[in-house]
Each structure stands twice: as C-alpha cells, then as structure tokens.
C-alpha cells in the first residue's frame, strides 16, 4: 500500500532539493528553477492531502454537490501564480542582465547596507 507519508516524504525531499538549489546556486536562472521545484513539491503535498481527505464528509461544504477539492484547487491556483512568477521573474532577469551583463545573483547586491 502507498500511504500518505510516501508522498509527504517525497514532497519534503523535492522541496529540500529546491531550497538547497536556491541557497547555493548563483545563477539566477537556476535559482528561479529551484523556486519552481519548491512550488511543485508543495503542490504534490496538497494533492496528496486532498486525496486523503476526499472521503471526509465534514470538509464538503453544506449543500455542496461535489467532493472535497480544496487541495487540488490550491494546487491549481499555485500553478497559475507560478506561471505569472516565472514570466515576471524572467523579465527581471533580462533587465538585470541589461544592467549588469551578468546573471549572477551575488553581483546584484545594490541593496547592501
């Protein structure tokens, strides 16, 4: 049997890999990809929990005509936001490159105190 914890551990692992990538890589593009990875890991967890609680009558809204889909809806919106984030993020990468001729995060430190 596959239990919820399989998915959770997998999600945690993917999230950790993404976080690791974001923290250690200096290429902005790779950092952005790492963010996408983390978002996906969260999505996986949400969908797994949705599957777990789909049979919970208490979560179905009163008078509802559908099974509980909260987790999947969350994942759906996260995908939408992630797409927007990727578009804006890559636009910023282009702007940064135009300014610095580099895509290294450690060279974009104008906010240094």
């Amino acid at each position: 049997m596959i239990h919820i914890q399989h998915y959770l551990v997998l999600g945690a692992t993917l999230f950790t890999i993404g976080a690791f990538g974001f923290l250690t890589r200096r290429n902005v593009l790779v950092a952005l990809m790492s963010i996408e990875l983390m978002l996906n890991a969260v999505n996986l967890t949400l969908v797994a929990f949705n599957r777990l609680h789909a049979g919970n009558l208490a979560l179905v809204a009163p008078g509802g005509r559908n099974l509980h889909h909260g987790g999947q809806m969350f994942a759906f919106f996260i995908i939408a936001v992630a797409a927007a984030e990727a578009a804006v993020g890559l636009a910023i990468v282009l702007a940064l490159y135009r300014l610095r001729r580099s895509v290294r995060t450690d060279e974009a430190d104008q906010l240094r105190g």
């Binding site: 923290l23 250690t24 950092a31 995060t105 450690d106 974009a108 430190d109 906010l111 240094r112 105190g113």
Partner: peptide
C-alpha cells in the same frame, strides 16, 4: 546591523 545586510538574496 549593516553587517547583516549583504544585499545578496540568498
């Protein structure tokens, strides 16, 4: 406090 503000996102 400035020492902590490296300006690097990571």
């Amino acid at each position: 406090l400035r020492l902590f503000q490296t300006g690097k996102v990571q």
